[in-house]
Design a protein around this nucleic acid. Structure first.
Lengths: 223, 223
DNA sequence: ACCTGAACACCGTTCAAGT
DNA sequence: ACCTGAACACCGTTCAAGT
């Protein structure tokens, strides 16, 4: 009975950053951002709220670690084809990842994460752009543009219930006076369709890549 | 002394939705989103927290009204030039407005607002696109793309302290191993520059408009 | 070293009561 | 009709104490 320890009544034995983060991710996915409180997290683990503060200074630090873990764990998509195809697939992959954890997108708004794990994606994008012939400054701007568009698409378009979002849009547009809002009043179905699904994202992505191609052509001609 | 009322010790006489919203906007701007609590808001007005619940069912309804008021009060930019110039100026105006109230951007993430006041902007964008020759479905997608990009630029790029954001990016990128992150390691200054200022927004906007021009040309050729 | 208990200063919100 | 007071069920976090 030297190394055998009696079973703990609470499962609080191997408390660690990893264990806390795993439980937080689980809670985040099940209950959403609002449901992720220090007290509820502690309760789930079977421990007092204060125990968490041994491992994280405060809730902010815990949240940082949670997003970081989530971002770092996803394996990058394998890419092939020309630079446009590769960038498109990278952004589609990013969008899919973000849509899987929409709560984490909100979290990233207030805290830009620049851990090595998070920067793998940036590195991949920059590699594609540099190899395609973009100057470093242009590549950085171009990546930033793609990033902002893709994150924005999820942040401002990941509706829990797409059908309801469409119906709400239709209802809101139907209320408008056709005299004051002629363009919208004549495009109610089209505007509603632009609120959900892959269509608007693919349209914007294609626009952006066309625009980037133009920039590349202009610069090459200038040399 | 029939109509003259004794001065109230607290200034709670003309409590109304408008007065509450005005106080909430003030508090939001001074203390940020976290500082806007029902209790603090009530205190500022000189009233009990419960008094607010006569005018709004709950905090969510109050927040909706607050954003709506803010969005509706800004006069739209006056636009001139060709459609590209008009759209660019509209998005620049939107970005300026959003940057003036970055807290409200976070609020709009969870609650899509489609009040008539908020839709004036959409109407303006749709008018420009339809007049330029875009089909209704394309115009809706195109507007959505511009909207998502502009909102995303502010949501993911409105740093309270731009210099600090740049320094943090440089610090994070300097930590990376050049073997694993060759593209980023060779573009540290450029990547940091892409995090702040007007440069990345203008680059992305120009990209998008070029891409939209291409779409328009293709469609016109197809007809 | 690691966790607990009690406490503090906050929340949003309900419900009964005051005027 | 409009506002108040007291209360409830939550928060994040500090600090002293237990083992």
């Amino acid at each position: 009975m030297s190394t055998t320890r009696p079973a703990a009544s609470k499962t609080s034995y191997g408390l660690s950053r990893e264990r806390i983060i795993a439980a937080a991710l689980e809670l985040l996915e099940r209950e959403g951002l609002e449901g992720l409180s220090m007290r509820r997290l502690a309760e789930r683990i079977g421990v007092t709220p204060m125990a968490l503060y041994r491992y994280f200074h405060d809730k902010d630090e815990l949240l940082d670690a949670v997003i970081d873990a989530e971002v770092s764990q996803a394996p990058l998509a394998r890419l092939q084809g020309d630079w446009r195809r590769q960038l498109a697939d990278l952004m589609r992959w990013l969008r899919d990842e973000l849509m899987r954890h929409p709560e984490a997108v909100k979290l990233r708004l207030s805290r830009p994460i620049q851990s090595p794990g998070a920067l793998r994606l940036t590195e991949a994008g920059m590699q594609i752009l540099l190899k395609a012939g973009f100057a470093r400054a242009d590549a950085a701007y171009a990546y930033r543009t793609l990033f902002v568009f893709t994150f924005g698409s999820v942040a401002f378009g990941a509706h829990a219930d797409p059908d309801q979002a469409r119906r709400q849009t239709i209802a809101a547009l139907t209320l408008l006076s056709p005299e004051e809002y002629p363009a919208l009043a004549s495009s109610i179905d089209e505007a509603a369709a632009a609120m959900t699904g892959d269509g608007p994202f693919e349209y914007g992505l294609s626009c952006l890549l066309n625009g980037l191609q133009d920039k590349l052509d202009v610069n090459k001609k200038g040399q």
